[in-house]
């Protein structure tokens, strides 16, 4: 195997890992503050990708031709729409189910995901066809020794990593992060100490959805394609990552995402003929991992009061 090939694999693996990590962190946040398996997360992400794509369409006509300005506007549109949708989901469909059976919350988020997905497929113009997402970053190559990598790829990886690090800092260092951690640890005590529970849940959903928008942007800019069914697979991968890392644990979610991406890359090395088989391989390994270590690699908090 030559070094160029290896480097290409490493780079595409890193992109995947960053996207998955952004999704998985959202899942783990939702589990932390509300103990909800929010399956609509993936389709909220897809909605964000379509919002960004839609925002791009009229830009050239409006005279905005600078790729940088376009990128900024598209990102703002995507993040805003995603956060708005995430907040709607949290406020009207998840918060009212406080105390309802877990099955009901799970079913609601699954069906909401379907509503969003089908809504885009049916009502977006030609919604069932893939849309080509614009390449807004410089696409020329840089050479590091024998390795040729596209500039946009490197920028996306670093942007993604920076967002993840910033999120970690937000959770660990700020008052908002402290409130999230307090609620995740013990909701009742946190309330008694004056934490506004609803606000924290909504904040966590806004944060998680914003991260999903970032994942959507990175995904769109790297693959130059968005389609209505992308959210489902990302949701499953993100959630699996969160589980194998240890639910409710940010570092675990990131670790899980990197493991998943790594497995897909290994799978594609052995089965280069089809990416779908490498997905099957990655899921099979993940299922074995879950069976072996159901509470995750970095243990989750488990305490049931009997």
């Amino acid at each position: 195997m030559d070094i160029a090939f290896v480097s290409q694999i490493v780079v595409s693996g890193l992109i995947l890992a960053v996207i998955y990590a952004l999704v998985a962190v959202g899942f783990t946040l939702f589990v932390g503050v509300f103990n909800v398996l929010n399956f609509s997360h993936g389709d909220v992400l897809m909605f964000g990708a379509f919002a960004g794509f839609t925002a791009f369409l009229p830009l050239a006509g409006l005279g905005v031709t600078s790729p940088f300005l376009q990128l900024v506007l598209v990102t703002i549109a995507s993040v805003t729409c995603t956060i708005a949708l995430g907040l709607i989901v949290a406020r009207f469909f998840i918060l009212p189910l406080k105390g309802a059976p877990l099955l009901n919350t799970l079913l609601i988020t699954l069906m909401l995901a379907t509503v969003i997905r089908e809504g885009v497929r049916l009502f977006y113009p030609r919604g069932s066809n893939p849309k080509s997402f614009p390449a807004l970053l410089p696409t020329d190559f840089v050479s590091i020794g024998a390795i040729n990598v596209r500039v946009d790829t490197i920028m996306l990886i670093f942007a993604g990593l920076a967002i993840i690090v910033a999120t970690g800092a937000l959770i660990e260092r700020t008052r908002f992060g402290l409130a999230i951690r307090a609620v995740a640890q013990d909701e009742e005590t946190a309330r008694c100490m004056g934490v506004n529970y609803r606000l924290v849940v909504l904040g966590a959903f806004a944060l998680g959805s914003g991260l999903a928008a970032c994942a959507a942007m990175i995904n769109g800019l790297y693959y130059n394609e968005v389609n209505y069914s992308m959210g489902l697979m990302l949701a499953i991968i993100g959630f699996c990552s969160a589980i194998i890392g240890g639910l409710g644990n940010i570092a675990g979610a990131i670790l899980g995402a990197f493991i998943f991406a790594g497995l897909q890359i290994v799978g594609s090395l052995f089965m280069p003929f089809s990416s779908a088989y490498s997905d099957v391989f990655a899921f099979a390994v993940i299922l074995v991992l879950i069976a072996l270590k159901p509470t995750g690699l970095i243990g989750e908090r488990v305490s049931e009061r009997v």
């Binding site: 099955l103 699954l110 099957v280 074995v288």
Partner: peptide
């Protein structure tokens, strides 16, 4: 994996299977 995962998180296993 379904039997060993706590609560309804196990549902992700059948969802993944259903999609794949």
């Amino acid at each position: 994996p379904v039997l060993r995962t706590r609560g309804h998180y196990a549902s992700v296993v059948t969802i993944a299977f259903g999609v794949l």
